[in-house]
């Protein structure tokens, strides 16, 4: 029984088909990545799942049908999106950003526990709690975006290109954290262009090309696949 089951998802902008009917299955506790070149429709897939763009097909999350639901309802059901470009609230402080992550929760005691938890995960954010989020470095902003998503206690975390525009050292730090979060039991769907990294930390992978899934399987096996090596790993 999968936590997220997607059947025949299609996303189109005007006449242009960005996602051409894909199937995805993610089980509870898995870290799954969706890799593929620029413009393959990876981000559009996430936008479709979150109800941010019009889409066709079936999206089932934890047994409930999400098709046609508004974004805020989907978020309240336990799916958190860390959008491409991070989408932090630049003119709010770090602490206020984190508080916004728990916007739809009312369990104040548990929110405080989670705040302490994300501060433990990202000590830098605690140091900068009163600083405006827009003044953080790119890597810190990415940490904040992930921490903010975790403040909603999501059951499924959608990460859209967390390595984008970051220095290699920072990318490694972010990926270590993603692994930690996954080990704590949060189910993750990771969208990446950086196939090398994504395949190394994930258990399973989908490869997307021109709006369709071209390959899927266990990440270690895909990392050895000659087609993948040729197309994405530059070997």
């Amino acid at each position: 029984m999968s936590l997220l089951a997607v059947r025949g998802l299609r996303v189109a902008y005007g006449g242009i088909q960005a996602v051409r009917g894909i199937d995805l299955d993610i089980a509870q506790g898995e870290l799954v990545c969706l890799i593929g070149p620029n413009g393959a429709g990876k981000s559009s897939t996430l936008r479709g799942l979150m109800g941010l763009v019009g889409h066709e097909g079936q999206v089932h999350f934890d047994g409930a049908c999400l098709t046609g639901r508004a974004t805020h309802e989907i978020a309240t059901r336990g799916i958190a999106l860390v959008p491409e470009g991070r989408g932090i609230f630049g003119r709010l402080t770090v602490a206020e950003n984190l508080a916004m992550g728990a916007y739809s929760r009312r369990d104040h005691a548990a929110i405080r526990v989670d705040m302490a938890h994300v501060h433990a995960l990202f000590p830098r954010l605690e140091e900068r709690r009163d600083q405006l989020a827009g003044t953080l470095s790119g890597g810190e902003q990415q940490m904040l975006a992930i921490a903010r998503a975790l403040m909603g206690r999501p059951r499924l975390l959608l990460l859209d290109e967390p390595s984008m525009g970051l220095a290699p050292l920072m990318v490694r730090r972010i990926y270590e954290t993603v692994t930690t979060v996954a080990r704590e039991g949060v189910t993750i769907l990771l969208v990446e262009q950086n196939a090398h990294l994504a395949l190394r930390i994930s258990q399973r992978a989908y490869v997307m090309e021109s709006g369709s899934i071209s390959l899927s399987g266990n990440s270690p096996e895909l990392a050895m696949d000659t087609r993948i090596r040729a197309a994405y790993l530059g070997e």
Binding site: A75, L81, P83, G87
Partner: peptide
């Protein structure tokens, strides 16, 4: 707070569960 989030980033605000 919802207004402030909306002002800063609509997509992220919706993803936080803001209607």
């Amino acid at each position: 707070r919802a207004w402030a989030a909306l002002r800063e980033d609509e997509v992220a605000a919706a993803a936080m569960g803001i209607n």
